[in-house]
């Protein structure tokens, strides 16, 4: 993370080139296929990508772990579902309201929680996630309990009806890519540099005048908003929500996506999402029962053989990209 205006400009251009290639490649997918199976994989990949990018900012950039992010996805999904089906709120407004709610809750629980470190932070966020999960089950009047909420309408905007899977693909990926671009630019912003500093040493960052608690809270809230928006999109796409989509397991797999992709740059989130989404789909073709056996073993193999900072994959990436920031 060398400063210098000139080097920033010189890196800004290629970064946006590769972003453009990614964006064009993904957005062109509906031109090649009408297969709703493939489009549904992409649709879920987009929302997962949003959550993973948010988590990457929290974990990769700021070094703060969260094992409770499924709860924020759940808040978004349930927020949209309840507001739209019960209160007849406009779906887009409901999406924004849920995101604001998620941010507020993240802010509230973040203040005491982010003071904790390492495994105690993991435990606290995990506890938070479990509490939200229990509330989703128990507040039956609001959430309809374990039966879930049915009849959530697909999104639409004026004449555009996003129940068409190809249109929805464009919508959800545009949103995901905007968020990704935001994250790309954020890493080199004031906040991004502050977060990187505090990941290395919180004390050193503080001594340099970084308000570490506030910065951590900011990125925590940002990642909660991303998760919440992703949840809202999923809810409208599946047209149904139930509490078992927002368990600890989901949170853990999200963190796995971040770690497997690596902390090197936000592009790690692309890799992580891709691997975690596509590997199980491929394994399924061979043996459905053994999906998680093979997937679990592959996670171990990836972590052991393709380390985050040095090792075959990192060296390959280094080679491909010419130079790299650490």
């Amino acid at each position: 993370m060398s400063g210098g205006t000139s080097s920033r400009v010189s890196r800004f251009v290629p970064r946006n080139w590769s972003f453009a290639v990614l964006a064009v490649a993904v957005l062109l997918v509906p031109a090649f296929t009408r297969d709703t199976y493939i489009l549904s994989i992409f649709a879920f990949m987009a929302t997962r990508f949003m959550v993973v990018v948010g988590l990457w900012l929290l974990l990769g950039l700021a070094g703060q772990i969260s094992l409770g992010h499924a709860a924020f996805v759940g808040l978004g999904a349930y927020g949209s579902a309840i507001l739209v089906t019960r209160a007849d709120v406009n779906p887009w407004l409901a999406l924004v309201m849920s995101a604001v709610l998620a941010a507020a809750i993240a802010g509230l629980i973040g203040i005491p929680t982010l003071k904790l470190k390492g495994h105690y932070l993991a435990m606290a966020t995990m506890g938070f996630g479990e509490i939200i999960h229990i509330l989703l089950i128990q507040l039956k009047g609001l959430t309809n309990g374990t039966d879930g909420i049915t009849g959530i309408p697909p999104l639409s905007l004026g004449p555009l009806n996003f129940s068409d899977p190809r249109l929805y693909h464009l919508l959800v990926w545009v949103v995901a890519l905007i968020f990704f671009l935001l994250a790309l630019n954020l890493t080199n912003s004031r906040l991004g540099r502050a977060l990187q500093a505090l990941r290395r040493s919180e004390v050193a960052a503080q001594s340099l005048g970084v308000d570490t608690s506030w910065r951590k809270l900011q990125v925590f809230m940002l990642s909660a908003v991303a998760a919440s928006i992703a949840g809202s999109f999923d809810a409208h796409y599946v047209q149904f929500v139930s509490p078992d989509s927002f368990t600890l397991n989901v949170s853990v797999i999200l963190v796995c996506s971040v770690v497997i992709g690596g902390f090197r740059s936000v592009w790690g989130a692309v890799w992580g999402t891709l691997l975690i989404t596509i590997l199980p789909e491929i394994i399924k073709r061979f043996n459905e029962d053994a999906v998680n056996l093979v997937f679990g073993l592959l996670i171990i193999v990836i972590v052991v053989l393709l380390p985050v900072k040095s090792g075959p994959l990192a060296r390959l990436q280094l080679l491909l990209r010419g130079r790299e920031r650490l």
């Binding site: 080139w17 590769s18 972003f19 290639v21 490649a25 297969d35 596509i278 491929i282 491909l320």
Partner: peptide
């Protein structure tokens, strides 16, 4: 430009899925 390659690899994986149907 180098990340174009990264994206290209990603696109290849996508193709794998596309054709692994049936």
């Amino acid at each position: 430009m180098h990340k174009i390659l990264v994206a290209a690899v990603a696109a290849c994986l996508v193709v794998v899925v596309l054709f692994s149907g049936c």
